[in-house]
């Protein structure tokens, strides 16, 4: 079971790099959606046997991360009428390389941590660190509001992976609460993005600082 889990996590890591390397925001949304859908399978695999809370967590994560949030963002993207992140702070190839370095760092770092025996072989911890780092790279180097929301989503995916370490003891309520917060957060941001777009005809967050006047 743990080997299948590792294969899924490797795919998640590759999606991180792919998302960093593409300029089309729609493609990034689809990648992050696929990543979320893949991640929602992890509770099933990490837990070992099917129980009602685990099944609920899986279905809720799949519905929110895989379907609801991406379709909301795609809608906002259509309204905002933008297609690409035009000039990120650092280019696409440097961000891929930065992401790759982050992943290597996460792998090396996780191997130094005193993990519980059952997690020593799994990639859960390095994958979670690498995904969080990818989210940070997104948040710091992209200027379109929607790209930054995507960075936030990737960051949350990383935290979700880390939470899987505790899936056996974490109450379902906490998991659901996190998902609900995420959903509401994205919902509000999408509305704000829409408003920004209507009022200022630009989605560049750098221009928000000049609104003092």
């Amino acid at each position: 079971m743990i080997h299948l889990l590792n294969a899924i996590l490797v795919l998640v890591l590759m999606m991180n790099l792919f998302a960093l390397g593409t300029s089309r925001i729609m493609t990034v949304i689809q990648t992050v959606a696929a990543q979320g859908a893949l991640l929602s399978l992890i509770p099933l695999l990490a837990h070992g046997h099917l129980t009602l809370p685990v099944a609920l967590a899986t279905i809720a994560a799949l519905a929110l991360k895989g379907i609801a949030i991406p379709s909301m963002m795609a809608h906002a993207l259509r309204d905002a009428n933008i297609k690409r992140e035009v000039e990120p702070l650092i280019g696409l190839l440097p961000s891929i390389i930065l992401g790759a370095l982050g992943t290597v760092f996460a792998l090396l770092f996780a191997s130094q941590l005193p993990l519980a025996g059952e997690h020593a072989d799994s990639l859960l911890v390095p994958a979670s660190f690498a995904t969080m780092l990818t989210g940070f790279i997104f948040l710091t180097t992209r200027f379109k509001a929607l790209s930054q929301v995507l960075g936030y989503l990737v960051l949350e995916n990383g935290i979700f992976i880390f939470g899987m370490l505790l899936i056996n003891v974490m109450p379902l309520m906490v998991e659901m609460g996190v998902l609900l917060d995420l959903f509401v957060g994205i919902f509000v941001i999408c509305i704000i993005v829409n408003k920004i777009n209507q009022s200022f005809s630009s989605m560049d967050t750098r221009q928000l600082v000049s609104l003092k006047e």
Binding site: H3, N6, A7, V10
Partner: peptide, 8 residues
């Protein structure tokens, strides 16, 4: 055990 590297 080596599924992950093989996928890559």
């Amino acid at each position: 055990t080596v599924i992950a590297p093989l996928v890559l």
